[in-house]
Amino acid sequence: MSVNIQSSGRVVVAYLSGEIDHHSAKQMREQIDAALNSYMPSMLALDFKDVTFMDSSGIGLIMGRYRLLSKTAAQLCIINTPEHIYKIMKLAGIEKLAKLSKGEIKNETGC
């Protein structure tokens, strides 16, 4: 489990990898929130390309970041979502909170 953060201007991209469960979500949350606090982005993109497993703790992680970002009217994007993770995101209705994509990030203002 790891998080690699990259910032370009107003966009922060967090590349998540490994397994996201209740055990690992806490540390991921702390790393993402530290980046949000220092960069104050207008958009956060969570990249799930290298996530091998996710349960509903990952949904909690996404919902929590959504709540945080909406305080500053910042956007949340979820990109490179593998099929098995897409399934749980659809079940949770994540597309109502964030732009949900199986592909790459397209530009700075949208996904």
Partner: peptide, 14 residues
């Protein structure tokens, strides 16, 4: 508390 989504049983069920 905190960031539980409340989806555990829904996930198991589906």
């Amino acid at each position: 508390a905190g960031e539980r989504a409340g989806l555990g049983f829904s996930v198991m069920e589906s």
